[in-house]
Design a protein around this nucleic acid. Structure first.
Length: 490
RNA sequence: GGCGCCGUACCCAAGUGGUAAGGGAGCAGUCUGCAAAACUGCGAUGCGGCGGUUCGAACCCGCCCGGCGCCUCCA
Protein backbone atom coordinates (compact mmCIF):
# COMPACT_ATOMS: atom_id res chain seq x y z
CA UNK A 1 0.00 0.00 0.00
CA UNK A 2 1.23 3.44 -0.91
CA UNK A 3 2.56 5.61 1.86
CA UNK A 4 3.20 9.30 1.42
CA UNK A 5 4.99 11.81 3.56
CA UNK A 6 2.33 14.32 4.51
CA UNK A 7 3.65 17.79 5.27
CA UNK A 8 0.47 18.53 7.19
CA UNK A 9 1.18 15.88 9.81
CA UNK A 10 4.93 15.67 9.35
CA UNK A 11 4.62 11.91 9.06
CA UNK A 12 4.50 9.24 6.47
CA UNK A 13 0.96 7.95 6.19
CA UNK A 14 -0.85 5.22 4.36
CA UNK A 15 -2.64 6.70 1.41
CA UNK A 16 -6.36 6.15 1.46
CA UNK A 17 -8.40 8.02 -1.11
CA UNK A 18 -11.73 9.58 -0.26
CA UNK A 19 -13.46 7.53 -2.93
CA UNK A 20 -12.27 3.96 -3.40
CA UNK A 21 -10.07 3.51 -6.47
CA UNK A 22 -10.24 7.19 -7.33
CA UNK A 23 -7.69 9.86 -6.65
CA UNK A 24 -8.14 13.57 -7.03
CA UNK A 25 -4.94 15.56 -6.96
CA UNK A 26 -4.00 19.17 -7.49
CA UNK A 27 -0.52 20.44 -8.17
CA UNK A 28 0.59 24.04 -8.32
CA UNK A 29 1.91 24.67 -11.76
CA UNK A 30 4.00 27.60 -12.88
CA UNK A 31 3.58 31.31 -13.29
CA UNK A 32 3.98 31.75 -17.01
CA UNK A 33 6.31 34.69 -17.44
CA UNK A 34 9.54 32.91 -18.34
CA UNK A 35 11.00 29.61 -19.51
CA UNK A 36 10.95 26.73 -17.06
CA UNK A 37 14.15 25.64 -15.41
CA UNK A 38 15.29 22.26 -14.20
CA UNK A 39 13.68 22.87 -10.82
CA UNK A 40 10.29 23.26 -12.42
CA UNK A 41 11.06 20.07 -14.28
CA UNK A 42 11.71 18.22 -11.05
CA UNK A 43 8.44 19.30 -9.52
CA UNK A 44 6.48 18.48 -12.65
CA UNK A 45 8.23 15.14 -12.92
CA UNK A 46 7.67 14.12 -9.31
CA UNK A 47 3.95 14.55 -9.65
CA UNK A 48 3.94 13.04 -13.11
CA UNK A 49 5.49 9.94 -11.57
CA UNK A 50 3.08 10.00 -8.64
CA UNK A 51 0.23 10.12 -11.10
CA UNK A 52 1.71 7.34 -13.20
CA UNK A 53 2.28 5.15 -10.17
CA UNK A 54 -1.25 5.70 -8.89
CA UNK A 55 -2.55 4.70 -12.29
CA UNK A 56 -0.23 1.70 -12.39
CA UNK A 57 -1.64 0.76 -9.00
CA UNK A 58 -5.14 0.76 -10.43
CA UNK A 59 -6.49 4.15 -9.43
CA UNK A 60 -8.43 6.41 -11.71
CA UNK A 61 -6.66 9.72 -11.28
CA UNK A 62 -8.10 13.15 -11.81
CA UNK A 63 -5.07 15.35 -12.00
CA UNK A 64 -5.38 19.13 -12.02
CA UNK A 65 -2.41 21.40 -12.61
CA UNK A 66 -2.89 25.10 -13.03
CA UNK A 67 -1.22 27.90 -14.91
CA UNK A 68 -0.93 31.18 -13.06
CA UNK A 69 -1.56 33.71 -15.77
CA UNK A 70 -2.30 36.85 -13.75
CA UNK A 71 0.57 38.10 -11.69
CA UNK A 72 2.86 41.06 -11.02
CA UNK A 73 5.77 39.42 -12.78
CA UNK A 74 3.72 38.85 -15.90
CA UNK A 75 2.57 42.46 -15.94
CA UNK A 76 6.12 43.63 -15.42
CA UNK A 77 7.41 41.46 -18.22
CA UNK A 78 4.66 42.59 -20.56
CA UNK A 79 5.41 46.23 -19.85
CA UNK A 80 9.12 45.70 -20.38
CA UNK A 81 8.49 44.19 -23.75
CA UNK A 82 5.66 46.44 -24.70
CA UNK A 83 3.30 43.58 -25.35
CA UNK A 84 0.07 42.35 -23.79
CA UNK A 85 -0.02 40.00 -20.84
CA UNK A 86 -1.75 37.47 -23.05
CA UNK A 87 1.19 37.54 -25.42
CA UNK A 88 3.52 36.72 -22.55
CA UNK A 89 1.39 34.01 -21.00
CA UNK A 90 0.55 32.46 -24.35
CA UNK A 91 4.19 32.26 -25.31
CA UNK A 92 5.32 30.67 -22.09
CA UNK A 93 2.43 28.24 -21.86
CA UNK A 94 3.45 27.00 -25.30
CA UNK A 95 7.06 26.81 -24.15
CA UNK A 96 5.96 24.91 -21.05
CA UNK A 97 4.24 22.24 -23.12
CA UNK A 98 7.17 22.00 -25.46
CA UNK A 99 9.79 21.67 -22.72
CA UNK A 100 7.83 19.37 -20.45
CA UNK A 101 6.79 17.32 -23.44
CA UNK A 102 10.43 16.60 -24.19
CA UNK A 103 10.73 15.29 -20.65
CA UNK A 104 7.82 12.96 -21.25
CA UNK A 105 5.61 14.78 -18.79
CA UNK A 106 2.02 14.18 -19.76
CA UNK A 107 -0.84 16.60 -19.70
CA UNK A 108 -2.96 16.77 -16.61
CA UNK A 109 -6.63 15.91 -16.73
CA UNK A 110 -7.42 19.60 -16.34
CA UNK A 111 -5.03 22.50 -16.72
CA UNK A 112 -7.04 25.51 -15.61
CA UNK A 113 -5.90 29.10 -15.86
CA UNK A 114 -6.57 31.74 -13.26
CA UNK A 115 -7.98 34.19 -15.79
CA UNK A 116 -10.70 31.72 -16.69
CA UNK A 117 -11.94 31.42 -13.09
CA UNK A 118 -12.78 34.98 -12.09
CA UNK A 119 -16.32 34.07 -11.13
CA UNK A 120 -15.15 31.38 -8.75
CA UNK A 121 -12.47 33.64 -7.33
CA UNK A 122 -14.92 36.47 -6.69
CA UNK A 123 -17.45 34.10 -5.17
CA UNK A 124 -14.88 32.62 -2.85
CA UNK A 125 -13.73 36.06 -1.79
CA UNK A 126 -17.30 37.09 -1.06
CA UNK A 127 -17.84 33.98 0.97
CA UNK A 128 -14.80 34.79 3.08
CA UNK A 129 -16.00 38.33 3.68
CA UNK A 130 -19.45 37.16 4.67
CA UNK A 131 -17.90 34.73 7.13
CA UNK A 132 -15.91 37.53 8.68
CA UNK A 133 -12.58 36.10 7.62
CA UNK A 134 -11.80 38.79 5.12
CA UNK A 135 -12.29 42.51 4.81
CA UNK A 136 -12.39 45.00 1.97
CA UNK A 137 -10.40 48.20 2.13
CA UNK A 138 -10.51 50.69 -0.69
CA UNK A 139 -10.83 48.21 -3.52
CA UNK A 140 -8.53 45.60 -1.97
CA UNK A 141 -9.67 42.56 -0.07
CA UNK A 142 -7.50 40.92 2.56
CA UNK A 143 -7.72 37.67 4.41
CA UNK A 144 -7.56 38.31 8.13
CA UNK A 145 -5.19 35.72 9.52
CA UNK A 146 -6.05 36.38 13.16
CA UNK A 147 -9.60 35.24 12.49
CA UNK A 148 -8.38 31.85 11.36
CA UNK A 149 -6.98 30.06 14.42
CA UNK A 150 -5.45 27.16 12.50
CA UNK A 151 -3.24 29.51 10.52
CA UNK A 152 0.28 28.09 10.49
CA UNK A 153 -0.78 24.47 10.77
CA UNK A 154 0.88 23.38 7.56
CA UNK A 155 4.10 25.34 7.87
CA UNK A 156 4.28 24.83 11.65
CA UNK A 157 4.61 28.53 12.26
CA UNK A 158 3.00 30.73 14.81
CA UNK A 159 1.72 34.14 13.93
CA UNK A 160 3.99 35.66 16.57
CA UNK A 161 7.04 33.96 15.09
CA UNK A 162 6.18 35.28 11.68
CA UNK A 163 5.79 38.76 13.00
CA UNK A 164 9.22 38.74 14.53
CA UNK A 165 10.98 38.24 11.25
CA UNK A 166 8.56 39.94 8.94
CA UNK A 167 9.78 42.91 7.07
CA UNK A 168 8.17 46.21 7.79
CA UNK A 169 4.94 46.18 5.92
CA UNK A 170 4.29 49.51 4.31
CA UNK A 171 0.70 48.61 3.64
CA UNK A 172 -1.06 50.12 6.65
CA UNK A 173 -4.41 49.15 5.23
CA UNK A 174 -3.87 45.66 6.56
CA UNK A 175 -5.10 44.92 10.03
CA UNK A 176 -2.29 42.48 10.60
CA UNK A 177 1.03 42.42 8.75
CA UNK A 178 0.46 38.82 7.71
CA UNK A 179 -2.94 39.45 6.21
CA UNK A 180 -2.71 38.66 2.54
CA UNK A 181 -4.51 39.94 -0.53
CA UNK A 182 -7.42 38.05 -1.97
CA UNK A 183 -8.24 40.80 -4.40
CA UNK A 184 -6.14 43.73 -5.52
CA UNK A 185 -7.52 46.89 -7.06
CA UNK A 186 -5.95 47.46 -10.43
CA UNK A 187 -3.93 50.40 -11.57
CA UNK A 188 -4.57 51.88 -14.99
CA UNK A 189 -3.22 49.72 -17.76
CA UNK A 190 -3.19 46.56 -15.70
CA UNK A 191 -5.41 43.64 -16.53
CA UNK A 192 -8.57 43.83 -14.49
CA UNK A 193 -11.89 42.18 -13.92
CA UNK A 194 -15.07 43.61 -12.43
CA UNK A 195 -15.86 42.77 -8.83
CA UNK A 196 -18.05 44.02 -6.00
CA UNK A 197 -15.00 45.96 -4.78
CA UNK A 198 -14.28 47.63 -8.05
CA UNK A 199 -12.19 46.45 -10.94
CA UNK A 200 -9.15 44.51 -9.96
CA UNK A 201 -7.37 41.22 -10.09
CA UNK A 202 -6.99 38.26 -7.75
CA UNK A 203 -4.19 37.77 -5.27
CA UNK A 204 -1.85 34.89 -5.91
CA UNK A 205 -3.19 32.32 -3.47
CA UNK A 206 -6.91 32.55 -4.08
CA UNK A 207 -6.75 31.18 -7.61
CA UNK A 208 -5.54 27.78 -6.48
CA UNK A 209 -8.31 27.52 -3.91
CA UNK A 210 -10.89 28.53 -6.49
CA UNK A 211 -9.63 26.22 -9.21
CA UNK A 212 -9.05 23.19 -7.05
CA UNK A 213 -12.51 23.47 -5.49
CA UNK A 214 -14.07 23.99 -8.90
CA UNK A 215 -12.39 21.01 -10.54
CA UNK A 216 -11.94 18.62 -7.64
CA UNK A 217 -14.49 19.58 -5.05
CA UNK A 218 -14.13 21.13 -1.63
CA UNK A 219 -12.20 18.19 -0.24
CA UNK A 220 -9.80 16.18 -2.33
CA UNK A 221 -6.93 13.76 -1.86
CA UNK A 222 -3.53 15.16 -2.73
CA UNK A 223 -2.15 18.64 -3.09
CA UNK A 224 1.42 19.05 -4.24
CA UNK A 225 4.09 21.53 -5.16
CA UNK A 226 7.60 22.64 -4.40
CA UNK A 227 8.88 22.98 -0.85
CA UNK A 228 8.97 26.74 -1.16
CA UNK A 229 5.22 26.82 -1.61
CA UNK A 230 4.54 25.51 1.88
CA UNK A 231 4.69 29.04 3.16
CA UNK A 232 2.97 31.23 2.42
CA UNK A 233 1.20 29.87 -0.63
CA UNK A 234 -0.18 26.59 0.63
CA UNK A 235 -0.73 27.87 4.14
CA UNK A 236 -2.88 30.60 2.65
CA UNK A 237 -4.71 28.23 0.38
CA UNK A 238 -5.72 26.16 3.37
CA UNK A 239 -6.86 29.22 5.28
CA UNK A 240 -8.95 30.43 2.38
CA UNK A 241 -10.43 27.11 1.41
CA UNK A 242 -11.17 25.74 4.84
CA UNK A 243 -12.29 29.14 5.94
CA UNK A 244 -14.79 29.42 3.13
CA UNK A 245 -16.12 25.89 3.05
CA UNK A 246 -15.74 24.90 6.67
CA UNK A 247 -14.50 21.57 5.39
CA UNK A 248 -11.23 19.79 5.15
CA UNK A 249 -9.31 20.88 2.06
CA UNK A 250 -6.60 18.56 0.74
CA UNK A 251 -5.83 15.50 2.83
CA UNK A 252 -2.26 14.77 1.79
CA UNK A 253 0.23 17.56 1.18
CA UNK A 254 3.24 16.47 -0.81
CA UNK A 255 6.23 18.72 -1.41
CA UNK A 256 9.31 18.14 -3.48
CA UNK A 257 12.83 19.34 -2.63
CA UNK A 258 14.90 21.72 -4.67
CA UNK A 259 17.32 21.27 -7.44
CA UNK A 260 20.56 22.84 -6.38
CA UNK A 261 23.85 23.68 -8.00
CA UNK A 262 26.93 23.35 -5.83
CA UNK A 263 24.73 22.74 -2.77
CA UNK A 264 22.88 25.97 -3.30
CA UNK A 265 19.40 26.61 -4.51
CA UNK A 266 19.39 27.62 -8.11
CA UNK A 267 18.75 31.28 -8.57
CA UNK A 268 19.17 33.83 -11.25
CA UNK A 269 21.22 36.12 -9.03
CA UNK A 270 23.82 33.40 -8.49
CA UNK A 271 23.90 32.68 -12.18
CA UNK A 272 23.48 28.97 -11.52
CA UNK A 273 20.28 28.70 -13.42
CA UNK A 274 19.53 26.17 -16.11
CA UNK A 275 16.43 26.29 -18.22
CA UNK A 276 15.08 23.09 -19.65
CA UNK A 277 15.46 24.24 -23.22
CA UNK A 278 19.00 25.37 -22.62
CA UNK A 279 19.86 21.88 -21.44
CA UNK A 280 18.28 20.32 -24.48
CA UNK A 281 20.00 22.77 -26.78
CA UNK A 282 23.40 22.09 -25.29
CA UNK A 283 22.93 18.36 -25.12
CA UNK A 284 24.94 16.27 -27.55
CA UNK A 285 22.26 13.63 -27.46
CA UNK A 286 19.02 13.53 -29.35
CA UNK A 287 15.91 14.91 -27.76
CA UNK A 288 14.43 11.62 -26.66
CA UNK A 289 17.72 10.44 -25.22
CA UNK A 290 18.34 13.71 -23.40
CA UNK A 291 14.83 13.63 -22.04
CA UNK A 292 15.33 10.17 -20.63
CA UNK A 293 18.72 11.07 -19.16
CA UNK A 294 17.12 14.01 -17.36
CA UNK A 295 14.31 11.85 -16.06
CA UNK A 296 16.72 9.26 -14.75
CA UNK A 297 18.82 11.96 -13.13
CA UNK A 298 15.82 13.63 -11.51
CA UNK A 299 14.57 10.31 -10.15
CA UNK A 300 17.91 9.16 -8.80
CA UNK A 301 17.32 11.02 -5.55
CA UNK A 302 14.27 10.78 -3.35
CA UNK A 303 11.84 13.57 -4.24
CA UNK A 304 11.82 15.03 -0.76
CA UNK A 305 15.52 15.79 -0.54
CA UNK A 306 17.73 18.26 -2.35
CA UNK A 307 19.23 17.24 -5.67
CA UNK A 308 22.44 18.67 -7.02
CA UNK A 309 22.50 19.35 -10.73
CA UNK A 310 25.84 18.80 -12.36
CA UNK A 311 27.41 17.60 -15.52
CA UNK A 312 28.75 14.59 -13.70
CA UNK A 313 25.33 13.63 -12.40
CA UNK A 314 23.98 13.71 -15.93
CA UNK A 315 26.83 11.56 -17.16
CA UNK A 316 26.11 9.01 -14.47
CA UNK A 317 22.48 8.91 -15.48
CA UNK A 318 23.53 8.39 -19.07
CA UNK A 319 25.82 5.55 -18.10
CA UNK A 320 23.14 3.84 -16.10
CA UNK A 321 20.76 4.03 -19.03
CA UNK A 322 23.47 2.76 -21.38
CA UNK A 323 23.54 -0.36 -19.26
CA UNK A 324 19.80 -0.86 -19.49
CA UNK A 325 19.61 -0.25 -23.21
CA UNK A 326 22.56 -2.54 -23.75
CA UNK A 327 20.54 -5.23 -22.06
CA UNK A 328 17.47 -4.40 -24.15
CA UNK A 329 19.61 -4.64 -27.25
CA UNK A 330 20.84 -8.03 -26.17
CA UNK A 331 17.27 -9.10 -25.54
CA UNK A 332 16.48 -8.49 -29.19
CA UNK A 333 19.32 -10.65 -30.40
CA UNK A 334 17.89 -14.09 -30.92
CA UNK A 335 20.01 -17.13 -30.73
CA UNK A 336 19.17 -20.74 -30.14
CA UNK A 337 19.00 -20.71 -26.41
CA UNK A 338 17.98 -23.34 -24.01
CA UNK A 339 15.56 -22.67 -21.23
CA UNK A 340 16.73 -22.06 -17.72
CA UNK A 341 14.36 -21.30 -14.93
CA UNK A 342 14.50 -17.71 -13.89
CA UNK A 343 12.32 -15.30 -12.06
CA UNK A 344 11.76 -11.61 -12.26
CA UNK A 345 8.88 -11.49 -9.81
CA UNK A 346 11.18 -10.77 -6.89
CA UNK A 347 12.42 -7.53 -8.34
CA UNK A 348 9.05 -6.54 -9.69
CA UNK A 349 7.78 -6.86 -6.16
CA UNK A 350 10.78 -4.94 -4.88
CA UNK A 351 10.00 -2.17 -7.31
CA UNK A 352 6.46 -1.86 -6.03
CA UNK A 353 7.55 -1.90 -2.41
CA UNK A 354 10.00 0.88 -3.16
CA UNK A 355 7.39 2.99 -4.91
CA UNK A 356 4.87 2.33 -2.17
CA UNK A 357 7.42 3.67 0.25
CA UNK A 358 6.79 7.34 -0.35
CA UNK A 359 7.77 7.07 -3.99
CA UNK A 360 11.28 5.87 -3.29
CA UNK A 361 12.53 6.12 -6.85
CA UNK A 362 16.23 5.61 -6.00
CA UNK A 363 15.32 2.29 -4.41
CA UNK A 364 13.06 1.48 -7.35
CA UNK A 365 15.94 2.15 -9.72
CA UNK A 366 18.18 -0.02 -7.57
CA UNK A 367 15.66 -2.85 -7.97
CA UNK A 368 15.73 -2.38 -11.72
CA UNK A 369 19.52 -2.39 -11.66
CA UNK A 370 19.49 -5.65 -9.77
CA UNK A 371 17.02 -7.11 -12.21
CA UNK A 372 19.28 -5.97 -15.02
CA UNK A 373 22.18 -7.81 -13.44
CA UNK A 374 20.09 -10.91 -12.91
CA UNK A 375 18.96 -10.99 -16.51
CA UNK A 376 22.47 -10.42 -17.82
CA UNK A 377 23.52 -13.42 -15.81
CA UNK A 378 20.63 -15.39 -17.20
CA UNK A 379 21.65 -14.42 -20.71
CA UNK A 380 25.05 -15.94 -20.11
CA UNK A 381 23.32 -19.26 -19.63
CA UNK A 382 20.85 -18.64 -22.41
CA UNK A 383 17.29 -17.47 -22.63
CA UNK A 384 14.81 -18.36 -25.38
CA UNK A 385 13.51 -15.55 -27.57
CA UNK A 386 10.05 -15.71 -26.04
CA UNK A 387 11.44 -15.27 -22.58
CA UNK A 388 13.60 -12.41 -23.71
CA UNK A 389 10.57 -10.64 -24.99
CA UNK A 390 8.78 -11.28 -21.75
CA UNK A 391 11.61 -9.68 -19.83
CA UNK A 392 11.73 -6.69 -22.16
CA UNK A 393 7.98 -6.22 -21.66
CA UNK A 394 8.33 -6.21 -17.91
CA UNK A 395 11.05 -3.58 -18.12
CA UNK A 396 8.78 -1.58 -20.35
CA UNK A 397 5.90 -1.87 -17.92
CA UNK A 398 7.87 -0.87 -14.85
CA UNK A 399 9.80 1.72 -16.81
CA UNK A 400 6.58 3.32 -17.87
CA UNK A 401 5.86 4.27 -14.29
CA UNK A 402 9.07 6.27 -14.25
CA UNK A 403 8.84 7.28 -17.88
CA UNK A 404 11.92 5.26 -18.78
CA UNK A 405 12.85 2.40 -21.10
CA UNK A 406 10.26 3.15 -23.76
CA UNK A 407 12.72 3.60 -26.63
CA UNK A 408 13.92 0.92 -28.99
CA UNK A 409 17.58 0.06 -28.49
CA UNK A 410 18.43 1.44 -31.92
CA UNK A 411 17.01 4.78 -30.86
CA UNK A 412 19.34 4.88 -27.93
CA UNK A 413 22.72 6.55 -28.38
CA UNK A 414 25.46 4.48 -26.82
CA UNK A 415 28.30 6.59 -28.10
CA UNK A 416 30.12 7.55 -24.95
CA UNK A 417 32.26 10.26 -26.41
CA UNK A 418 31.45 13.40 -24.52
CA UNK A 419 31.45 16.17 -27.01
CA UNK A 420 29.75 18.89 -25.15
CA UNK A 421 28.98 19.56 -21.56
CA UNK A 422 25.58 20.30 -20.20
CA UNK A 423 25.92 21.24 -16.59
CA UNK A 424 28.46 23.08 -14.52
CA UNK A 425 31.69 21.76 -15.92
CA UNK A 426 33.15 24.25 -18.35
CA UNK A 427 35.53 22.08 -20.32
CA UNK A 428 34.45 21.55 -23.88
CA UNK A 429 35.92 18.67 -25.79
CA UNK A 430 36.39 18.67 -29.51
CA UNK A 431 33.02 18.01 -31.02
CA UNK A 432 32.37 15.15 -33.34
CA UNK A 433 29.92 16.60 -35.82
CA UNK A 434 26.52 15.24 -35.06
CA UNK A 435 26.00 14.83 -38.80
CA UNK A 436 28.48 11.99 -38.85
CA UNK A 437 25.94 9.82 -37.15
CA UNK A 438 23.39 10.65 -39.78
CA UNK A 439 25.26 9.71 -42.93
CA UNK A 440 26.76 6.53 -41.61
CA UNK A 441 24.08 3.98 -42.33
CA UNK A 442 23.60 0.59 -40.74
CA UNK A 443 24.56 -0.97 -44.05
CA UNK A 444 27.83 0.94 -44.06
CA UNK A 445 28.56 -0.44 -40.63
CA UNK A 446 27.57 -3.97 -41.59
CA UNK A 447 29.77 -3.92 -44.64
CA UNK A 448 32.72 -2.61 -42.61
CA UNK A 449 32.12 -5.36 -40.11
CA UNK A 450 32.02 -7.99 -42.83
CA UNK A 451 35.35 -6.73 -44.05
CA UNK A 452 36.69 -6.86 -40.54
CA UNK A 453 35.47 -10.41 -40.05
CA UNK A 454 37.32 -11.43 -43.20
CA UNK A 455 40.44 -9.78 -41.88
CA UNK A 456 40.05 -11.59 -38.57
CA UNK A 457 39.74 -14.90 -40.36
CA UNK A 458 42.98 -14.12 -42.15
CA UNK A 459 44.48 -13.27 -38.75
CA UNK A 460 45.09 -9.83 -40.16
CA UNK A 461 44.53 -8.15 -36.83
CA UNK A 462 46.16 -4.95 -37.90
CA UNK A 463 43.48 -4.46 -40.51
CA UNK A 464 40.73 -5.65 -38.16
CA UNK A 465 41.80 -3.24 -35.48
CA UNK A 466 42.04 -0.40 -37.97
CA UNK A 467 38.45 -0.95 -39.02
CA UNK A 468 37.33 -1.11 -35.44
CA UNK A 469 39.16 2.06 -34.64
CA UNK A 470 37.65 3.81 -37.61
CA UNK A 471 34.15 2.81 -36.58
CA UNK A 472 34.90 3.82 -32.99
CA UNK A 473 35.85 7.25 -34.15
CA UNK A 474 32.48 7.49 -35.83
CA UNK A 475 30.76 6.66 -32.59
CA UNK A 476 30.18 2.98 -33.27
CA UNK A 477 31.20 0.52 -30.58
CA UNK A 478 32.20 -2.97 -31.67
CA UNK A 479 31.94 -5.95 -29.38
CA UNK A 480 33.23 -9.31 -30.49
CA UNK A 481 31.31 -12.31 -29.34
CA UNK A 482 32.81 -15.69 -28.46
CA UNK A 483 31.44 -17.26 -31.64
CA UNK A 484 33.53 -14.97 -33.80
CA UNK A 485 30.72 -12.68 -34.83
CA UNK A 486 30.44 -9.11 -33.64
CA UNK A 487 27.70 -6.92 -32.29
CA UNK A 488 27.72 -3.19 -32.67
CA UNK A 489 25.90 -0.27 -31.21
CA UNK A 490 26.00 3.45 -31.50
C1' G B 1 14.97 35.98 16.11
C1' G B 2 11.30 31.92 14.57
C1' C B 3 10.31 27.35 11.66
C1' G B 4 12.31 23.30 8.92
C1' C B 5 15.76 20.16 6.15
C1' C B 6 20.38 17.77 5.56
C1' G B 7 25.44 15.47 6.99
C1' U B 8 26.10 7.32 5.04
C1' A B 9 32.66 4.66 1.35
C1' C B 10 36.67 8.36 -3.79
C1' C B 11 31.70 10.31 -6.10
C1' C B 12 26.16 9.76 -6.45
C1' A B 13 22.64 7.44 -3.25
C1' A B 14 18.94 3.87 -0.30
C1' G B 15 18.20 2.64 4.74
C1' U B 16 12.85 5.13 9.47
C1' G B 17 15.25 0.00 16.07
C1' G B 18 17.77 -5.98 14.56
C1' U B 19 23.24 -5.93 12.94
C1' A B 20 25.34 -1.00 6.21
C1' A B 21 20.94 -1.73 -0.92
C1' G B 22 22.16 -0.02 -5.73
C1' G B 23 25.05 2.77 -9.37
C1' G B 24 29.67 5.17 -10.98
C1' A B 25 34.99 5.28 -10.45
C1' G B 26 39.25 2.12 -8.95
C1' C B 27 41.82 -2.58 -8.41
C1' A B 28 42.01 -7.91 -9.44
C1' G B 29 40.00 -11.94 -12.35
C1' U B 30 36.76 -14.97 -16.16
C1' C B 31 36.19 -14.43 -21.46
C1' U B 32 39.22 -12.59 -25.57
C1' G B 33 44.38 -12.27 -30.79
C1' C B 34 43.62 -7.46 -28.62
C1' A B 35 39.68 -4.29 -27.22
C1' A B 36 34.81 -3.65 -25.60
C1' A B 37 30.66 -5.60 -23.18
C1' A B 38 28.90 -8.97 -19.71
C1' C B 39 29.99 -11.71 -15.47
C1' U B 40 33.01 -12.75 -10.69
C1' G B 41 35.77 -10.90 -6.56
C1' C B 42 37.79 -6.70 -3.44
C1' G B 43 36.15 -2.02 -1.00
C1' A B 44 32.63 1.90 5.10
C1' U B 45 34.01 -2.94 12.24
C1' G B 46 31.25 1.90 10.70
C1' C B 47 26.94 5.92 9.05
C1' G B 48 29.53 14.58 11.26
C1' G B 49 31.03 14.56 16.97
C1' C B 50 29.88 13.46 22.17
C1' G B 51 26.52 11.54 25.58
C1' G B 52 21.71 8.95 26.69
C1' U B 53 17.40 5.30 26.09
C1' U B 54 17.44 -0.05 24.61
C1' C B 55 19.09 -6.88 24.88
C1' G B 56 20.22 -4.22 20.39
C1' A B 57 20.60 2.55 17.09
C1' A B 58 22.87 5.10 10.93
C1' C B 59 17.85 4.91 12.48
C1' C B 60 14.79 7.26 19.06
C1' C B 61 16.28 11.49 22.79
C1' G B 62 19.75 15.58 24.27
C1' C B 63 23.85 18.72 23.33
C1' C B 64 27.60 20.26 19.92
C1' C B 65 29.95 20.95 14.92
C1' G B 66 29.20 21.72 9.67
C1' G B 67 25.99 22.79 5.23
C1' C B 68 21.25 24.48 3.31
C1' G B 69 16.26 26.31 2.90
C1' C B 70 11.83 29.15 4.38
C1' C B 71 9.86 33.45 7.15
C1' U B 72 9.67 38.67 0.57
C1' C B 73 8.39 36.41 -5.59
C1' C B 74 10.05 31.42 -6.08
C1' A B 75 9.19 24.32 -8.12
Amino acid sequence: MLQLFNTLTGKRESFEPIEPNKVRMYVCGVTVYDYCHIGHARSALVFDVLRRYLEYSGYVVTFVKNFTDVDDKIIKRANEQGVSCEAITGKFIDAYYEDMGKLGIGRATEEPRATAHMTEIVNLTEALISKGLAYAVGGDVYFQVEKYPAYGRLSKRKLEDLQAGARVDINERKRHPMDFALWKSSKPGEPSWPSPWGSGRPGWHIECSAMSIRHLGETFDIHGGGMDLIFPHHENEIAQSCGATGKEFARYWVHNGFVQVNQEKMSKSLGNFFTIREIFEKSEWSEVVTGEILRYFLLSTHYHGPLDFSDQALKEAKKALDGFYDLFLRLTESEEDEYHAYTIAFHVEGFKIAMDNDLNTPEALAQLQELRGAINKQLLKGLPAGRKQEVREEFRRLGKVLGLFQLEPNQWEFNTQIKRTIGTVTEIDEALPITVKKWLTDRDIESKLAERMEAKKRKDFTRADAIRKELNSLGVTIEDKPDGTSRWKR
